[in-house]
């Protein structure tokens, strides 16, 4: 069996080839590459720049411009909290602070050291009617309260057997 890293590298090569080494396709290439690695490692971005004949500074410029692209490895479970206008006025900041406190993370250091959780805010999820909205992985939770958000995270941590969260 080839290793996971080899499989990922071969996938990256296939993605670049699929787009014909076209620099104009940088964004879809980065999207698919991120899907493989769950973030964009520096060395992989340099490789992408090399294969597209672009400067690495430009590739990094694009990757760092879009919030969609992650420059750091993300946790196994990604918690996205909406902080758009509707959610904000309905108290999303309180939820965010509760999650930060619970998981010991912040806006700069968004991932727990055990790589289990990443907490992010998004500008709007387009579901203002059920504000405040939170998405964990791909599951949407409506009218979230700080207590409920913390309970959901604790539940996942329990399933993962990570006791530290409840500490």
């Amino acid at each position: 069996m080839p290793t996971v890293m080899l499989r990922k590298f071969e996938k990256v090569c296939a993605i670049i080839e699929k787009y014909g080494n076209d620099p104009a396709k940088l964004i879809p290439i980065l999207q698919e590459v991120q899907h493989e690695y769950r973030y964009l490692p520096e060395e992989v971005m340099i490789f992408v720049a090399t294969t597209l004949g672009m400067s690495p500074a430009k590739v990094f410029g694009v990757a760092s411009f879009y919030a969609h692209f992650a420059l750091q490895p993300k946790g196994k479970h990604v918690v996205r909290l909406c902080d758009g206008t509707a959610c904000h006025v309905k108290g999303s900041d309180g939820i965010l602070q509760a999650l930060y406190k619970k998981l010991g993370v912040d806006a700069q250091k968004a991932t727990t050291p055990d790589m289990l959780f990443t907490v992010e805010t998004v500008a709007c999820l387009g579901a203002c009617g059920i504000a405040p909205v939170m998405v964990i992985n791909d599951v949407v939770y409506s009218q979230v309260t700080p207590e409920r958000a913390v309970a959901l995270v604790e539940e996942i941590a329990m399933q993962e057997g990570a006791g530290h969260v409840s500490a």
Binding site: I46, A49, S55, A57, K58, F60, S64, F65
Partner: peptide, 17 residues
Amino acid sequence: GAIDFAYRGHDVVVQPA
């Protein structure tokens, strides 16, 4: 292309890759 813009909004900087 040794330097370029990176990040967005009030975080924008000009820097090498």
